[in-house]
Simulated scan of single mutants.
Amino acid sequence: MFLSRKFEAFMTVVENGSLSKAAKVMNRTTPPIAKSIKDFECTIGKKLFKREKFGMRLTNEGTALYHDLKNLYQQEKEITKKYLTSHITNTINIYYDWGKEKILSEIFKVAETNNIHTNIFRLNSESINDIPDYYGNILILTSEKIICERFSLLKEVQDFDFGIYARKDIINKSEDVMSLLHENIWLCNPALFKSQFIRSLEERVTNNVSKVNIRQIDNTTCCLKSIHTGRYICITNSMMDDFDGDSKIAFLHFTKEIFGKNNLYFYKSKSHSSVLNKIINYIENLNQ
């Protein structure tokens, strides 16, 4: 860092919400971070944080200072990276909860075209605050809204590919989607299994039947075998390539009229780096 450690500590605590998380990001222990914040407040001559039980919250003066400094901070990080490693970091980190293979593939193509390296990780919404965001290069794809001060909502779009994979004979015997859900065992990957969508779908279906049988499965081959050998259906928002060549398997879309909106939410680093701009431009033009 070309600028002072006090300045770096202030910005890192703001972006991570606590001294301990900031210390982890900066690869330091908590006491030096706390001292840097205290020294920075003495230098500025204002109280910048309110110390709370579970973290640090900016005062009005701290908020104003953060907004004045955040652009300078981002520029300083990119300049530092450039002169210490001979190039500006050209990597984005994408987190997603479940499904979304189609849109992830499209984003990957955009990144490749623009010579951007892409890392893709599974998202656990319970640990959203633990995602490291030192370079401002984070993109999050989620089926549920998240609350995190470090990430801002970029766009909300309708996800059209949500539905059920099942044997054609099972689909043909069912009167409609609800009867298909009533009469068969649901398969879904672990992230979807824990989602609000499955909980709400289960509640809706159990209004008409006493119980729904749901099982977690995170292997396409096992999923296919189960569908072929029993009364199993796979609930997903992924148009899986592995199913495309199977003449006995069909995909039945959930309609908006029956199940309401199935939205896809895009979040980005609140103070994002320039490497995200090409991806952001692509996402902003989705469904337009």
Rank of each mutant, 00 (worst) to 15 (best):
N262Q: 11
N213P: 03
T221A: 08
A250I: 09
T229D: 12
N219C: 08
I249P: 01
S238R: 01
M239A: 15
I217T: 08
N262R: 10
F243E: 00
T220A: 15
D244P: 11
H228K: 14
N262I: 05
D244F: 13
S247F: 09
V209M: 08
H253F: 07
N208D: 09
D241P: 10
I233E: 00
N263H: 10
L264T: 03
L224S: 04
T220L: 14
N207W: 07
T221I: 08
D218R: 01
T255I: 10
T221C: 05
S226I: 07
V209A: 10
N219A: 07
N219L: 05
I258L: 13
D218V: 02
N213E: 11
D218L: 01
L252E: 05
G260H: 05
C222G: 14
S238M: 02
S247D: 09
D241S: 15
S210R: 07
A250G: 09
T236C: 02
G230E: 09
S226A: 15
N207M: 13
G245S: 15
Q216F: 07
I258G: 14
M240Q: 10
N263I: 04
I249Q: 02
C234D: 02
N219S: 09
C234H: 01
Y232K: 06
K248C: 11
N219P: 01
F243H: 04
D241I: 12
H228L: 12
L224D: 02
G230W: 07
G260W: 03
N237Q: 12
H253P: 04
I258E: 13
I249N: 02
N213A: 13
I233H: 00
